[in-house]
Amino acid sequence: MNRRYSEEQIRTYLAEAASGVPVRELCARYGFSDASFYGWRARYGQPGQGDAREGRKLRELQEENTRLKSMLADALLKLELLRNRTGRNGSGKDR
């Protein structure tokens, strides 16, 4: 971990560069080298880049959750139908 700059500061610098501020200007303003900047960018990625991946992953998980809930509802319905067909109510009293 970089001791001189916090992760929050680094992400701020990366966001400034993404908004159009030249890298050389950022280097001069904040006192780091362009090699440091490009290393940070490789390590932390472009601002907003992770958001798209996380959003996609969240949608995939939500879709899977919906599918699993549907499967559970179907299984519970089948179980209820089997109980009604056999005359058992699942309480264990009719054994």
Rank of each mutant, 00 (worst) to 15 (best):
E64D: 13
R56F: 08
N65H: 11
Q62H: 08
S33Q: 03
G55N: 13
F32I: 05
W40H: 04
R29D: 10
S36M: 07
R56Q: 13
R43T: 15
W40N: 02
G31K: 04
Y30T: 07
S36E: 11
S36T: 14
S33F: 04
G55Q: 11
G50C: 01
L72V: 15
K69L: 13
A52W: 03
A52K: 06
Y44W: 10
D34V: 09
Y30C: 02
G39L: 06
G39I: 00
G48W: 00
Q46G: 05
D51A: 12
S70M: 10
D51I: 02
M71R: 14
E60V: 06
R67W: 06
P47F: 01
E63N: 11
E60P: 01
A35N: 09
Q62M: 10
R53F: 05
P47R: 06
Y38W: 12
L68W: 04
A42K: 12
R56W: 05
G55V: 05
R56V: 10
G31M: 04
G48D: 05
N65C: 13
Q49P: 00
E54Y: 01
R59D: 15
Q49E: 15
R59C: 09
T66S: 14
N65L: 14
Y44R: 01
G31I: 07
R29S: 11
K69C: 08
E54W: 00
